[in-house]
Write a protein that binds this DNA or RNA. Sequence first.
DNA 1: GATGCAAGTAATTAATTGCTTACATAGTAA
DNA 2: TTACTATGTAAGCAATTAATTACTTGCATC
Lengths: 203, 203
Amino acid sequence: MNKPIPRRSSTVLRQQEIVEAALRLAQFASPDGITTQAIADEVGLTQGALFRHFPSKEAIWIAVLAWVRERFRAEIDAAAARGATPIEQLGEIFRAHVRFVTTHPAVPRLIFHELQRPVESPARAEVRQIMEPYRQRILTLLKAAKATEAVAADLDLPSAAAMFVGTIQGLVMQTALADGVATLEARAKKMFPLFLSAIGARP
Amino acid sequence: MNKPIPRRSSTVLRQQEIVEAALRLAQFASPDGITTQAIADEVGLTQGALFRHFPSKEAIWIAVLAWVRERFRAEIDAAAARGATPIEQLGEIFRAHVRFVTTHPAVPRLIFHELQRPVESPARAEVRQIMEPYRQRILTLLKAAKATEAVAADLDLPSAAAMFVGTIQGLVMQTALADGVATLEARAKKMFPLFLSAIGARP
DNA sequence: GATGCAAGTAATTAATTGCTTACATAGTAA
DNA sequence: TTACTATGTAAGCAATTAATTACTTGCATC
């Protein structure tokens, strides 16, 4: 009943398989500890075959990050749609962000990996393309909240946006160091009210 | 007038030189992009000579992290001593923490590098030994603040401590991705009032 | 001075690994 | 059938690099 596994497959399909394999492996190893051989094994190809579908190893990781970017954006979109007011939307996004990390534990690892590198690179740019539009979106919501007088009138919006994102990022760092993502959601749940208090949100 | 550079030096002194060289190099390269050859060059030794003073490359990084740990602890101690009330002390520590990162830009890189690795290791344990006592110290100060009714009576202390640390960590991540640590201090300055608001601190 | 050890060097080794190449074959279209 | 192209394999190349080794030398001590 299984879908017959063709020995040969088109590049488009293989690229997706390779991206998924790499992301799977990144749950248990750091990106540059993952060899092209390991990825090939995970897909079920020889190592050389990878290079029929990607020009280099780095191109694979860039594709992985691009996949993550799209997926993350979609989840955040869906979350925002669930909230009626800006403050509610922020709450939904907060939860969705945390949920995304627990669902894809390899993602923080990929991001730490890029942050740890000192030089500009296409992969780094890709990471920025994940974070920057996200931060921008939070900022827009905060503006809307301020316009409806749902937050403190003298609130510094860029700082508040940085704090929203930073609170989650910091929490992910702390749990990554301590216990993986096991306790992340529980701890995040208690953080959001603190954020609301920080921005002077009215109940 | 320069101190004569002896061709030979004791292991204790060399270890310190090696640690400093590694930390210097880590400003411009990721830890595992730094070869033992590069470290040796920076110290002015041959590559093999390193292994007279450290059993392995990893041992060098562990020593670097231990050095960072001590140094960080001392800076935070000094900062805390400058504040009269718990809230003031938190402010001093916040600034000192941020200042430490801008002064030692290699440090976040080293920490990201460890976070990016999935397995437990002595180096990871060393990073935990930097963070955990720090978080604990913040928690203690928050307790004291609560005891003097300087913060909201119903404040969840562990969450607040996580937020204190996380706010800085998140900010470091964001600046690391955007512009190095160039704008870190300016942005951090605007964040602390938000934290005070989060914990319901009285002015 | 003679002695012994810690610290240094130069050369080598063993293992790893991304990528290339020469060749093979599946699938498709003429 | 024939021919063509995309996909696949197996082998190997070239470069990197942590660690080891055999040998040397500076220096404190007797």
